[in-house]
Structure formats: structure tokens, C-alpha cells
Nucleic acid binder design. Structure first.
Lengths: 242, 242
DNA sequence: GCGGGTCTGTACGCTGGCGTACATAGCGCG
DNA sequence: CGCGCTATGTACGCCAGCGTACAGACCCGC
């Protein structure tokens, strides 16, 4: 049904009614999203919105002292650049490609045109934004109360949900940057998860061996976020004529 | 211009063009919001949205183990119940009155009617939502990286901005609950702020004596949030015919 | 196949915030 | 005016996570 490079790989695009899809499709431009690419810098103006298909992008805040913190991740379930249609024009966060892959982009003014029709596209985007708010909120609570190991599990599971395979290309250093903790903290937590057989890793590659093991160690935050995404975006599989 | 119990005390209401305001005004119902009242329980359906005038409401997540964490505060600059028009119907967070006062409420279906006109009201609400996302995001980063004292300063300043006076009615226990830290941690931080002459307190009352002192101790998060609110809602003073 | 850069493992002391426990003090209500 | 509740002060041990430092291991490219 969906070939590897169809916009329909993205759940939001796939959920559009046929009319909306056909209106937009000609303007969706396939782009490669290499690891580390910065799609939006904090405070920058948005030229495009992005619908990732295989890539995963991390939204993060950079503090004055250089420390960072991921506030949410966006994969093929979502869209990047919500502040465009929310009315902000700029984002206060930074968007960095966390897993290399592809996505489709759409020029900002075309996005706005479609949004301003106040039709299905608008409703879908607002629902997604609501889900994103949940993710950010849960991150805030999780940062306050849960251990590094629990947060690592959460992060791995959320990333896994957006990937086709069970292997992620990712150094401990990068993960530490996203979670806003020390690299050594990730080494320790990951070592522990490896001992218990949940994961295996080698230099920049992590393979998840026992997903249920991770699920038994993760804090409630993972399930809460997932539940809310499913609830808000369940009707996303509606369109069959793809 | 604005009498003590006018809906225009709320900045969002005050920013509405005359036509919108007159359409809504007859349906705005003044309600008292006593300390501790729960406006929305996590997962509950929304019957009303609220525009606080003098009250301040805290949005918080309650974890499974009973620990809590505030994700944002809402005062006379905002509205409660955004998930209604964002498409969620229910909120995953809980809304508790943090400072007693008043507000106006509007029935959910009337709010939706107005929102669905896709006019100024919708644009205003989306802008506000964008500002709220910033606040939540900054809270997430702040929870990760900053000390209890810094967070206390942030919280005091944000609360102060929403109050007419420089005295807040608030126990250390309650503040601790909002920030998701131990009560003793607040005692210590508040004691320190008192020693340096920034604040004075007695059993349930905190008076801010030296605002600039707080500002010199607070982390960047306060200024970031404030800046973004000002940027997004600056046009809120437009309507002069009040 | 070998070198160099990067990634990962380990160690050590430090400190902020936690859990627990209990003492004191202010305020409201009878 | 005094009782009792609730808010606040203080103390002690504990530990997760930090900052720093360095050693070893892996991989890629030449």
C-alpha cells in the first residue's frame, strides 16, 4: 500500500481526506534528513513545515550554560513547525534530526493557506498539537521525579515506536544530550539494561532485544503519552484509498 | 476603565474585537474560585472554559505514587480548558485553584461555536496556546537543570505578575506541592530569600519586598517565558472601547 | 593492517535534594 | 484566653547524579 517514499508514511498526511491530500500532494517535497541537521534554530523564522516519514527529530531547549533538554520527539506520527499555524511564526525550541531518514516538507505559506480553510487539516493539526502538549507536560513531570534509567527506557521505547526495526543508530553521548544528563549516567544505565538482557549495544548502535523488559522498567510516563497519542490520533487510519 | 468584576480584567477577553465581545458577554458567568478548588480532574470531560480575572490556577500532573508537578500556571492572562478546542475534549492534567479569586466561565458548546467561526477568537486562543506550550517546555527544562531556590524565584515572580499586590497567600507546603519538591526544601530556600531581604513571610503569607533581588537570583526560565508571552500576546491591549 | 579519533568503561569525591523524625510557634476558634 | 491544629524550623543519614579524570576498546580510513 505505502511505498517506502510515499508521503503517506506520515500518519498525519495519511489521515487527510482525499480532497485535502490531492490539494497538497503536488507541493510535498521529499527531503533527506541527515543525522544532526538542525531544521529550526531557536527563535528562527519558519520557512517550511516537515512531515517526517523515516526520520526522527528531537525538539530541545538549550540553556544559557549550554546544557540541553529534549522536550519532545517527532517522528512519522507528527509534524514539525506547529508554531507556524499556532500564530507564533518562530519557535523557541530547536529541532535537530536525531535519527537520519526522510521526510516531506511543505512551504510555510501553502501550509497556512490550507490551515486557514479551517477544515479537516486544521482539526487534525490541532489534535496533534494537543498530543504534543501532553508529551511535553509528561516530560516535565518525568524530569522532576524519575530516575535516569527510567527515562532512558522511556526514550528508547518512544524512539522504537517510530522505527521500522529494533536497532537504533545512536551514541550514548547523543542520548545523554537529549535527556540532559551526563554521558556517564547513560553508560551506567545502559550497562545495566544490557546485563539484564533488555538491550545490546556496540559503538553507536543499540539493539532492543526484550521490549517487554524495557516496559517493565519504564515509568508510567511512557504509557501515558502513548495512550494520549492513540486516543487523539486513532482516527488517523481512516483513509483507505491510498 | 475596568471595574473589579468586569470580564475585561482577563486579557484574552479584553483583546477581543467588539463584535466578538458582545456576542460572548451575555454568556460569561462570574464565578468565585476558592483556594484548592479543582476545576478539572485529570481525564475529566470539560463542561466549561474559564477566564480567570483575579484567581490563579495551577495545571499539574499527579504521578502514580502521588507525587505532583506543576506544568504551568494560568491567571488573568489566559484561559483554562484549551483541550476543548484543541480537539481533545478531556485534559490529561489537573487544574487546581492556587490563589483564590474570581473568574468568568463559558459553557463548552458556546466556546466551540465561537471557535468554529475561525475568526479573531480562534486566532487569539491559538496564540495563547502557543505561549502555554512555551511555558510547559521551559518548565521541563527548568526541572532538569535548575536548583530549588531558582525555581522558587521563578514561581514567585510568575505568580506576582498575575497579582495586583505584592503579597501572596500561600503556605510552603502548597508551593512544594506545585514545584514537586519537599516542603523542607522550600523552607530552606525561602529562609535564605528572607535573610537576604527579598521576601518576608509569616504563616501562610509571603510578601515580596525586593523584586529585583528575586530577579537576580532566578534562572533564565522566567525571562524566557515572559518574553514569549509578551511577544505572542502583545496585541492584547488593542481594544480601547471598553 | 595499522594509526588516530571517537566512543565507552570505570573510578572518586562532592553536593543537592530526599525520607524521616521531631520540636517549636503562630493563628483561629471555641 | 487558652487549646489545638497546622505551619514552620531543624537535624541526620542517605543516595542519585554531577564534575572530573583517565584508560581501554572499537571502528574507519588510509
Amino acid at each position: 500500500m505505502t511505498d517506502p517514499h510515499s508521503p503517506n508514511q506520515n500518519h498525519l498526511v495519511a489521515a487527510l481526506p482525499t480532497a485535502e491530500f490531492e490539494r497538497l500532494a503536488p507541493h510535498l517535497e521529499l527531503v533527506a534528513m541527515p543525522l544532526g541537521e538542525v531544521l529550526y534554530e531557536s527563535g528562527g523564522k519558519l520557512q517550511h513545515v516537515y512531515f517526517p516519514t523515516t526520520a526522527i527529530v528531537s525538539l530541545q531547549y538549550i540553556m544559557e550554560n549550554g546544557a540541553s533538554a529534549e522536550i519532545a520527539g517527532v517522528g512519522n506520527e507528527g509534524i514539525l513547525g506547529i508554531s507556524l499555524f499556532m500564530g507564533g511564526e518562530t519557535t523557541p525550541s530547536r529541532a535537530v534530526v536525531q535519527t537520519a531518514g526522510y521526510g516531506y516538507r511543505l512551504k510555510a505559506h501553502l501550509m497556512m493557506q490550507e490551515f486557514n480553510r479551517a477544515g479537516p487539516m486544521m482539526r487534525l493539526l490541532l489534535r496533534y498539537t494537543q498530543a504534543l502538549i501532553t508529551q511535553v507536560s509528561q516530560t516535565a513531570a518525568c524530569n522532576r521525579h524519575h530516575s535516569v534509567e527510567q527515562q532512558l527506557c522511556r526514550w528508547l521505547l518512544l524512539t522504537l515506536d517510530r522505527l521500522p526495526s529494533n536497532e537504533l543508530t545512536m551514541t550514548q553521548e547523543l542520548i545523554a544530550g537529549m535527556l540532559g544528563v551526563r554521558r556517564e549516567g547513560i553508560t551506567e544505565a545502559a550497562g545495566h539494561l544490557q546485563q539484564t538482557g533488555c538491550i545490546r549495544y556496540r559503538r553507536g548502535h543499540i539493539t532492543v532485544l526484550d521490549r517487554s523488559g524495557l516496559e517493565s522498567r519504564v515509568c508510567e510516563c511512557y504509557a501515558e503519552v502513548k495512550k494520549e497519542f492513540d486516543r487523539l490520533l486513532c482516527d488517523v487510519q481512516n483513509r483507505q484509498d491510498i
